[in-house]
Nucleic acid binder design. Sequence first.
RNA 1: GGCGACGUAGCCAAGUGGUAAGGCAAGGGUCUGCAAAACCCUCAUUCGUGAGUUCGAUUCUCACCGUCGCCUCCA
Length: 517
Amino acid sequence: MTTPSFHNTLGRRQEPLETLQPGKVKLYTCGPTVYDHAHIGNLRTFVFEDILRRSLRYLGYEVYQVMNITDVDDKTIARAREQQLSLADYTRPFTESFFEDLRTLHIEPAEQYPRATEHVPEMIALVERLVEKGYAYESEGSIFFRIAQDEDYGRLSGFDLDQVRQGDRVVDDEYSKEDPRDFVLWKGAKPGEPHWDSPWGPGRPGWHLECSAMSMKYLGETFDIHCGGVDNIFPHHENEIAQSESATGKPFARHFLHAEHLIVDGEKMSKSRGNFYTLKDLLEHPTKPAEPRALRYALLSVHYRKKLNFTLAGLDDAEAALRRVDQMRFALEHATEKEAVAVDLRVDRGGGALRPAVERLENDFAAALADDLNVSKALATVFDFVRTVNKVIESGSLENGDKARVLAALASVDDVLGVLDPADWPVNRPPTGPPNGSVDGPPKAPADRPVDAEAETRDNQLSDDDIEALIQARTDARADKNFARADEIRDQLTEQGIVLEDTPQGTRWKRNRGHLS
RNA sequence: GGCGACGUAGCCAAGUGGUAAGGCAAGGGUCUGCAAAACCCUCAUUCGUGAGUUCGAUUCUCACCGUCGCCUCCA
């Protein structure tokens, strides 16, 4: 097991991962507020968290992840009311949409997806603890956290609240507080709002409260890693720390990892700028429908602490990069191995020209991930490997076991990346709608996902046998120097989206998967 | 006003106190009946600008320019 180190927002330094229990990671990742569809910025963060959990497992850890679903807050309440729906009826489709997005991007499901509305008693209990300890007070039916009582408040964000400008939002706050910087734990119900009974009368939880209460319930009073977007650092995570640690007297989370934001065409994504994308927007893009696979690649390929500049052109680059790996896989499957020459019987390394390359890949890949999730570097090791394998294939020097070894190595690194096997991914064919029908429940783990490479191509008129026969006919024609006939067959196959590759070892073929190329 | 991040080839993007990974694009080559597809090779004397520290800086320091983020319910 390799011990990774991560940049901890708490302290702003990279430090080795220390877990409460050896080999086990308790991970809490802030989930969506289900007032609308997730946008690709949200998804960038979720992809980062997916890479984190997969990397931890790759490095030998067992991971237990909790992601909350915020299904009650100002926005959900306001919009539900606008549409005259109950809160549950309003949030349900967006919750489903969120899970569907996770499946589309092959984000592994967390172990728990607790909903805020289902944990109100736990939240009330937490507030009671804070009130008892003098960290919280009641005012007009609401409960506030008394920041002045918390001497180390601000240590995550680095804000000295005495210096912080008193923003409009603070000053204009409609609630009455002892100190304008105090934040609300429990909001007294206003007429017409959803509410729960509490010792302080009807009300609803404040935003920060749910994460403290639910992480405590599912992960314990202290856990290992807490993630979210950078905008969560303040106030959300700062307030979670304040609430949780004041209540328990114990450290809340040991490591905080925050994902930088995604920007679009160099600018902040916002609806007013017209550069705001949900996943659906991209999958159903009128001129260039995105491949989910390329999207995942694009979202994971930039280091999580760096702003990701999302562009449509970048999506094309991602597709091209993946094609490079696919092509190696394709060539490998059609190549033949030769008997390994027993060079040195004293060293039982199982032969294979590519054995050293495989070992280098696995070592370097793991080392890159262990270094604060350096995905760019990890990808570089994959492409170095691809080049090495290509050279061996082209020179015809694959040896016994090399094919299996290369495929196993690819599968191994793909346990983390989740993009390298085209058979796992449907092709986006916009006119016929989403290729995969069923969308219920959280996404399946890769191991459980049925792999059916040909499933999406069954609508082609030509069967594999037809194609093989035509290729044979073309080969015969070429042998007879009947090039007119040979080219005719080639054109016919091209029209059917069949790509021929003539090599010194014969003709191999593949179906053109992309809708552009 | 406070705090912070970033600026590396046409584009995306790693990285290090000792002389610049990887991907896309581009150019060349190989293969081919011709092609296509594919593969291979090449592609930053230089890391926003200026100064400083140093034997040596893209990497450290300072200043400047530029881009961006957070500053109480935005991932």
